[in-house]
Nucleic acid binder design. Structure first.
Lengths: 220, 220, 220, 220
DNA sequence: CATGAATGAGGCTTCATTCAT
DNA sequence: TATGAATGAAGCCTCATTCAT
């Protein structure tokens, strides 16, 4: 299960039925993802993105007001897509402990497997508050669920969400780096659960249990 | 105790007795800190830094080979200075739990109190591996101490160090943001200790106990 | 027949039928020629060239990777154009003595008559080995022809080619200087022939004979 | 007899008896020679020259008004020194043919043997009219002598001097390049003599005869 | 005389953005 | 819609020269 599952045109593929304009826009988003992943948000230039998308330089501004707008759109598109996939996969998990564990592992899995997403996400995370907010929404609900279920022993507030959420991003970063292997997700999940007050034994058990068919699921 | 304690020329102040060149260099470091804090590492331009330092553009290159060299020097200078101060303050703490707690709180305290240091550190953290490494060294020793003392129940490896370390940076970030108030340090420390396996009650007690005279120490 | 036959846009003129981009590129080449002629290769700055071409600074890099690339392109364009014209004019000259004489005279004539070419060539000659090589190819063939015809009494090698070739450049230089008048070509040709072993009387006769209609040829 | 006879401080050595100022000046000239030889006239920067001379940057302007002044002084110093040595060596040669041959061979020999002189001379030759003039003076006298002796069959004028003189420089250039070996001097001399009207057989004999003790003379 | 820090103009290059086609 | 040439501000860096010590 390597990192190099080739998979281009993630967003463009979904717009075959839409107008030409929407398709161009999607192609730009895909290209931007690739370039962001390669070079980072600031280092990516509009011309490189359009070159990657096989378009003329000026076409960019028909679809986006700004480089900044593109950045946002790309990040949120990725986040939304990941969220959608995860919602699907997690729809019938009730236990907050399992949800947090599965969510973290699954997220890291998806992001690192999907070409360009992992890096793009890492690169954008600390720069785009919108991204952190968006991701935080999901996490927060599970944390609150855990408190309600009496399994997390720590009050949920923005700060907690940021801290627990950042652990996911840091683990993803290590994964992309090569600093950490495929076990990064489990390790991160275990740490989160310990932090949240789950018994260490249980945390380890849940975080390292096989992910089930979900893994091979909607990876595209 | 707000964030706006005016305090310019942190490094320049220490070089009054040195040659003119060293003083100019220090002025550049201070100016860079200010600009990094305002705009981030990449967005800071040499001309803006020299303008901030009231120098001619070319003077910069008398003191640094490169913008990259400056970046490194600034980050490591700050890190070294913080490390020095913290070493002093922590010299006689033996208990690993206390060390981790005190270290985290004190670090956030110092960095957020010193004009520009907090932001500069946050901005540099994810961009400069050297910085993460350097900070990690210190943390790792305390984690290993905790394992040796039998108070931390999780094996120490690079990944753990990165994760626990990142919590400090994330908390500092929230502090600088205004997302978190002065209690950020205690909150972060408490979470770290929980993650490491310290009993939640103990973690809370240690993380929130008064910091002692250290706080009023060398904050400037 | 002075040196100041106004004649701008030598390359641009030939591209009226091509795309806008090619025309801009040609304008840059013409401008570069002018600036090279005025200031020399190294002293010419991109901004001065674009100013001469009435373009924005950045436009330059749409057409050339580099100042170096431009330099080469300009030198080789000129050389190629001169070579083309000379090939045309010399196609039906068989006698090596006449070829060398005519080539030298014609070259100096063309280069000194065409606005900027003379100086640009002189300025580039010692700096661009590619230019010396290219010019050397042509000369060498005529030298070898002369040996084959039994009229040149000196073995042809790289060194000889460089020496004989440099005489052309030196004469052109003197012509541009104003040190030498329009007779520079004949004088240079005569010296070359003497050097090559042609009888002095014959050398003088050939080198000074009227150039025929060629002179009034494609000087534009 | 390689090109790498180490020989630093050519001018500085002669000023031991002079004031400190004169010695510094001479050190700068030597340093400039080295840098010119390494990088060319325009590429040499004042700071590199002073660094080579182990002096402070500003000291330069105590000794020279300008970078341009230095350039001139360096070139003329070298020329004067070479001329002095050659005058010595040629004092008792009467025959113009021998003088031209010996002069050319000896000049190339000295310049290519003396560390830095060869390159510096080549690099300066086309840029400094003063240098060409100076060298031309000497050559002209021998050419006129040859005409007077009835051995050169071509009228002496500025143009001839430039052409014959340039052959020396071109040969030196090829020598420095590595394009030509130690025989460059003889080859060049032979060509000059042929050009001047000397019988090819005689030209060859004279140009290739052993140089005599002169060679081992003042080469350092 | 000498030092070496400082200056600031100017060179090369990139890039977000506009605009005529 | 799309193109791609053009723009010009801005970034990094070098270097001849000046000046306080």
């Amino acid at each position: 299960m390597g990192l190099t599952v080739l998979q281009s045109a993630l967003f463009a593929d979904k717009t075959k039925h839409l107008g030409k304009s929407a398709r161009s826009r999607a192609r730009l988003i895909d290209a931007a993802l690739a370039v962001f992943a390669r070079e980072g948000l600031e280092a990516a230039s509009v011309s490189e993105i359009t070159r990657e998308a096989d378009m003329a330089n000026g076409t960019f501004y028909l679809h986006f007001k700004d480089k900044g707008e593109l950045t946002l759109v790309v990040a949120l598109s990725v986040a939304a897509e990941i969220a959608r996939e995860m919602d699907d996969a997690m729809a019938d998990i009730d236990d907050a402990i399992e949800r947090v564990s599965f969510g973290t592992r699954q997220f890291i899995h998806i992001a690192s497997e999907r070409l360009n997403w992992g890096w793009a996400f890492c690169r954008a995370f600390w720069v785009l508050p919108e991204l952190r907010m968006g991701a935080g929404q999901y996490l927060r609900r599970d944390l609150e669920r855990g408190v309600a279920q009496g399994v997390f022993s720590i009050p949920v507030d923005d700060f907690l969400v940021e801290m627990v959420g950042s652990l996911v991003n840091v683990a993803l970063f290590a994964r992309m780096n090569g600093t950490a292997g495929p076990e990064a997700g489990s390790k991160a999940a275990e740490m989160q659960l310990r932090l949240l007050g789950v018994d260490p034994e249980l945390a380890k058990r849940v975080a390292w249990q096989p992910l089930g068919g979900a893994l091979s699921g909607p990876t595209s």
